[in-house]
Write a protein that binds this DNA or RNA. Structure first.
Lengths: 188, 188
DNA sequence: TTCAAAACTAAGCAATTGCTTAGTAATAAT
DNA sequence: ATTATTACTAAGCAATTGCTTAGTTTTGAA
C-alpha cells in the first residue's frame, strides 16, 4: 500500500547523537545532520518533527548507550566503592574521541543551553542523573560503617566530581584525570 | 580634527562580557551585543574588528575581574589551604546570577567551543588556568609536611574540582555545592 | 570659516539557519 | 492494471547570521 522507509530510525539517530556529542546542539546544523544521518531533510522532519525532536531522540539514544556501557557494569559489580571508581575510569574510555574527549552529552547540554534548555530535555537529563546517584548510593551503602547522612553527602560529592571529570576530560591530559580520580576516592 | 567616540571601550566591553557569560559565544548575536553595549554595529566593528574580537576583549575583561575579586584575595591570604577553600566559596558568589549560576566564562568557553576554539583565545584561557594553579601550589606549599609530588597531585585535583564546581553551579543547589567543597577539602 | 579626519546612522549584503512544499517514485491491497 | 498511501528528491521559503558600505554629522587644527 505504501512505500517503505529506506533507513532505520534507530540507526540514523545514533549517527545524529554522535554529531551532537561532538559539536553541541547549536553548532550542529540540519545540513550537517542530513549528511551524517544519510537521509534527506524531509525524512528527518517526517520522522522526528524538527531539529529539537532529533536532539531529544539523540539524548535517549545516549542514555541507552551509557546504560549499557557504564551503568549496567556499575550495577552488576560487587566491589562496593571500588565499583564507583571503575565507573569513573570507564567514563573516560566511554567519552574518548580524537585526542580530546567529548565529555558527557548530557552535561554538555546543560552547560550549553543552561536555563534555556527545553523542559522535556531537562527532565530526561535529571532522570538520568538521579538514576546514577541512586546507584552510587547503593554502592556506598555496601560499606556498613557509614550512616545515611554521610552517604548522601558523599553521593553529592561524587556527582559533582563526575561533572568535573566530564568537563576536565575535554581539556586535561589523561594523567591529570587519573590524579583527580585517585584523589577523589582517597577520601572516601 | 576628528570626531570623539561617544563610548568608552572598556565600559561597553564589560557589558558584552556579561552577555557572553550568560549566553555563550554562539548564542550571542551581534544584534544582541549592539543592544547590550549600546553602540552601533559599525562602532563595534571599528573598535574590535569582528565578533571574535569583541569576545577576545571580553575574555580579557573577565580575567581582570576574576583577578581583582578572586585571585588577589587568594594571593593576599595567609590562611594556607583554608585560603583555597575560601576561593571556592568566593567563586560561587562571583558567578551568581538569577537563581542559576553562570559558571566560569573560561570554562564555559572551552566547554562550548572545545577544539574549535581559536588558538589566541585558548592561550588566554591556559595562561589564566596556569596562574590559578601556581597560586594554589603556593598555598599548598605553606603546609611544610607535603612533598612536591603530593603537592602537584593535589593541585591537579583542586583544578579539576574547580571545573566541576563551575559546571555544577549551573545545575545544583547551594547545599550540594557546599557539600562538595567541604568534601574536597576534607581529604587534603 | 574651511576642510580633512574620524565616528556616527541605517540600509543592505551574501551566506546560513530551521523548515516547507511541489512534484515524483515506490509500495501493496484492490 | 489501478489506485491510494507513503517516502523520496530538490527547490525554495522567511528569518537570522556576521559583516559592509554609502551617506551624514561632529570635530578641531589650519
Amino acid at each position: 500500500m505504501a512505500r517503505k522507509k529506506e533507513y532505520i530510525e534507530e540507526e540514523v539517530i545514533e549517527k545524529a547523537m554522535n554529531l551532537f556529542w561532538r559539536n553541541g546542539y547549536e553548532t550542529t546544523s540540519v545540513r550537517m545532520l542530513e549528511k551524517e544521518m544519510g537521509i534527506n531533510q524531509f525524512s528527518m522532519y517526517s520522522s522526528f518533527g524538527n531539529k529539537h525532536g532529533v536532539f531529544l531522540e539523540s539524548i535517549k539514544c545516549y542514555k541507552k548507550k551509557a546504560k549499557e556501557e557504564l551503568i549496567d557494569k556499575l550495577k552488576q559489580s560487587t566491589n562496593g566503592v571500588e565499583a564507583i571508581k571503575e565507573y569513573f575510569y570507564n567514563f573516560i574510555e566511554f567519552s574518548k574521541d580524537t585526542k580530546i574527549n567529548k565529555g558527557c552529552l548530557l552535561t554538555n547540554t546543560v552547560n550549553e543551553l543552561g536555563e534555556h534548555a527545553d523542559t522535556v530535555i531537562m527532565s530526561e537529563i535529571i532522570k538520568f542523573a538521579t538514576g546514577i546517584k541512586s546507584h552510587i548510593i547503593k554502592k556506598l551503602e555496601s560499606d556498613e560503617q557509614k550512616d545515611s547522612k554521610t552517604i548522601v553527602k558523599q553521593a553529592n560529592y561524587l556527582m559533582v566530581s563526575l561533572q568535573g571529570l566530564s568537563v576536565a576530560s575535554k581539556m586535561f591530559e589523561r594523567q591529570q584525570l587519573e590524579d583527580f580520580i585517585e584523589s577523589v576516592f582517597k577520601s572516601l
